[in-house]
Design a protein around this nucleic acid. Structure first.
Lengths: 336, 336
DNA sequence: TTATAAAGTGTAAGCGCTTACATTAAAATC
DNA sequence: GATTTTAATGTAAGCGCTTACACTTTATAA
């Protein structure tokens, strides 16, 4: 069995309170005593039991990040931001993966209910107002990342604006028949990106056509997969007349889309959304999301709330930036 | 403040023991009583406090997966396997990210010491025998994934064999001057893959040349980055004479390598290692690692050990399979 | 009906800690 | 040197649960 604070106290000839103090308020115990205790602790390989600590102190020093399958670089970047922000604070990070199979809301609710952590970061989880209100009842500090709500703190990204910029870019290059490579229609990011796409068309006097909204059949991860992009691009390539250019709603899908283009030896200007690390390497023009910053800022925000629970809800919205690469620039040269 | 078991007991007019039983041994409480309690629980939004439960019952029903930054699809696959295996059991999964900045050993040791969970999965963490022995002292159930050791259960992959197969494939296609796109020399997977590469050369009567072992300058993630692959391929392209073909030690690096090839408009047969989802879409020949299976099997193994701690240590080694795609097959046709 | 077993519930101890408060030892003040 | 402060440690009461054991019902058998 592992050692308890009693074992250490006895071996060091002090009371358990002193041992506890060595760990929590080291300055209040006489240096010599501290040394003595620490020596025993080291020899016996003792470590305070987190559950007991958590129960007794009501402090957990723990942040939990809830996110759907860490499917791509998006999370890596967000995670880096979170970790860097956390590095200066005395908090640990745990990740709870929200599977796609089951009901995301319940998975999140179950996790919050357990009061695992002091605060929670909900990453790329999109809930209805009603669901969020229900989550609010648990009364735990939450910050949304990559989602917006007036109920919780949030750090989000202007998807609508990003889609607008991308579409406008294609329009300004002279394209008129611009297809949008979409995904699950009721997913929040898709809803917003479609909105931006439509607004760009509208403001530039181009009529929107439902037939140019193309979706793959694979609906895993709400349709944000390479396969789904591949399927959708094949549908586009089967259109007659072909579209002039394509706005793809995610880099992951664009990877699949590029495969289809290559197979058909067709060359179509393609702009995408996310700016994953890999996008640079496959020459993908795309809309940059400041993922690292979003993770970093959201964590800061959450920690501030922990320190001061009465803070007013605050929402931070980050803005898109176009990153232009060969998929829209050197299209002709790239032709095979 | 959140409700405790006392609040529920009082409201339901039963003792706390009965409430506890409703959660833990539901069958031993009279259906009507159970209903009554559950009703109150629901109304008051109660949920047992995990820390208190863990402390009192000494059960945690929790598995922790420790892994370095979830940098690529490798982890996604492993994670899926873990989750699917866990789905049938009554365990929850937590992920602790082992940052690359600090000393991985200490991060792992700190986590194990805390006795967070019942069992631990150490994914892609490569420690020395000495370090593993030190970890063993914590006396907690551990299963290594993607690493091998006789001290702990493990589910690993035969890297040496994979590299051998890939290199042999190139040799059999008639290439003699085969470069290896390597990474941090003292990383365990690199060591093994280099070994397989050398053995293949040796067994086919080709002399090994140190000059064909090429590494990028970027050493983030032990050199397993797109950038590193890009840099290394540029070095290869600067060689005179150029190599006939390239064995790249990871798909991520191959993405970078392909960019360099494209920029130089050079066409070099390239085979890689991992078989990430994306590899299929960029036509990368590669060595398949059964990542999903490894995650699945490792979790099974760990759970078995939890049920039966006296089990003898067991090691499972998975074998590579070549997946041939256009990067080695249609090289000429792909030329731009 | 009464004895006996089975089912259901309650009581209370304890899981390993933290921390308010009490106590004692050491330092500072006069 | 006696008295007051301050520093260091100890005592003991919880934190919110589980569970062995004791006790009370209810069902079953005779």
């Amino acid at each position: 069995m592992s050692k308890t604070i009693y074992d250490i106290a006895k071996a060091a000839g002090v009371s358990i309170a002193t041992v506890s103090r060595v760990f929590n308020q080291a300055e209040s115990v006489k240096p010599e005593t501290r040394e003595k205790v620490l020596k025993v602790v080291d020899e016996m390989g003792y470590h305070p039991h987190v559950y007991a600590q958590g129960l007794a102190s009501k402090k957990k020093n723990r942040i939990v990040m809830l996110a759907p399958v860490m499917s791509n670089y998006f999370f890596t970047e967000v995670l880096k931001g979170i970790q860097d922000s956390l590095a200066e604070e005395n908090y640990e990070l745990n990740i709870v993966n929200i599977g796609h199979k089951k009901d995301a809301y319940n998975q999140v609710a179950e996790t919050l209910k357990k009061r695992w952590a002091e605060g929670y970061l909900l990453v790329s989880l999109h809930f209805s107002e009603k669901e969020l209100k229900a989550l609010q009842k648990f009364n735990v500090p939450v910050c949304l990342v990559d989602d917006f709500s007036t109920i919780f703190d949030s750090v989000s990204f202007n998807n609508e604006e990003g889609a607008y910029l991308a579409t406008e870019y294609l329009i300004e290059k002279g394209f008129k028949r611009i297809a949008i490579l979409s995904a699950k229609a009721d997913s929040i990011p898709i809803r917003d990106r479609l909105k931006g796409y439509k607004r760009a068309l509208d403001e530039h006097g181009i009529e929107f056509s439902e037939s140019l909204v193309v979706t793959g059949d694979d609906m895993a991860r709400d349709g944000f997969t390479e396969l789904s992009g591949y399927e959708a691009m094949n549908k586009i390539l089967a259109m007659d007349p072909l579209s002039d250019a394509v706005f793809c709603t995610s880099d992951t899908k664009a990877v699949g889309a590029q495969k289809a283009l290559k197979e058909h030896k067709v060359d179509l200007p393609l702009i995408s959304f996310d700016n994953l690390t890999i996008s640079e390497y496959i020459g993908l023009s795309t809309v940059n999301q400041p993922m690292y910053d979003m993770g970093f800022r959201a964590t800061n925000k959450l920690i501030q709330r922990l320190h001061n629970p009465d803070l007013r809800i605050s929402n931070e919205v980050h803005h898109p930036e176009l990153v232009i690469r060969s998929s829209t620039e050197n299209v002709n040269e790239v032709t095979t």
